[in-house]
Computed example of a mutant assay.
Amino acid sequence: MDQTSKVVSLVGDYFSLAYDPSSRKFEEVFHPHCQIQWLRDGALESMTAQAYRTLIHGRASPASSGAPRDEGILDIRHISPHLSAATVRVRIGNNSFVDHFVVHEVEGKWLITNKSSFLAGSFA
């Protein structure tokens, strides 16, 4: 499988994890040192991968509420043979996000090492 296919596969696993956290192992998508970041009222907020894991496993999943699934890859760039970036859109419940991922191949496995996100819109 080429680099693009590996990154696309990882992003697909992220989409499945976001929709139904029980569908994928978190550690097969996110590196344990991953940082999740976003802006709130102009201030940078962040959390660790472990805190994000706790968050997504502690809330009702979009799948459990029958929320529609809406997601897509907006862009993929390869920086080196072991480093890529991907920009995606994903609906989680009533919110639409745009996420930018930095992904590394670590010990032969592609993982998200940074997730920067913003709330692009909400559905009533």
Rank of each mutant, 00 (worst) to 15 (best):
S65W: 04
R91V: 02
V29N: 14
Y52D: 11
F97K: 07
R77T: 14
H57R: 10
S65F: 05
R69E: 06
A85V: 11
I92T: 12
L39K: 10
G42H: 08
L83H: 13
I36W: 01
S61H: 03
R91H: 03
V102E: 09
R89H: 02
F101A: 14
H100Q: 11
E28A: 15
G93N: 13
D75E: 14
I112S: 12
F118C: 12
R24D: 06
E107Y: 00
K109H: 10
A43G: 01
V103K: 01
R59H: 15
D99H: 08
N95Q: 07
G58P: 03
E27K: 08
S96V: 13
R24F: 02
G72A: 08
R91M: 12
F97S: 10
R24G: 05
S122V: 12
R40M: 02
S64Y: 01
S116K: 04
E105G: 00
N114K: 07
A124H: 06
P68A: 10
I79N: 13
A49C: 14
A124N: 15
S80P: 10
S96L: 15
H57L: 06
L83E: 11
P21I: 00
F118P: 01
I36L: 14
D41W: 03
G108R: 10
S22V: 05
L83D: 11
S65Q: 14
E107G: 06
A49N: 05
C34T: 12
A49P: 14
I73M: 03
S61Q: 07
T87K: 15
S22E: 07
Y52P: 04
E71L: 08
H31D: 14
Y52V: 09
I36F: 07
E45P: 05
A85M: 11
T113V: 15
H78A: 11
M47D: 08
G42Q: 08
I56V: 11
T54K: 01
E105L: 09
D20N: 13
R69S: 12
D41G: 15
L39Y: 01
R91I: 01
T87M: 05
A49Y: 00
E105A: 06
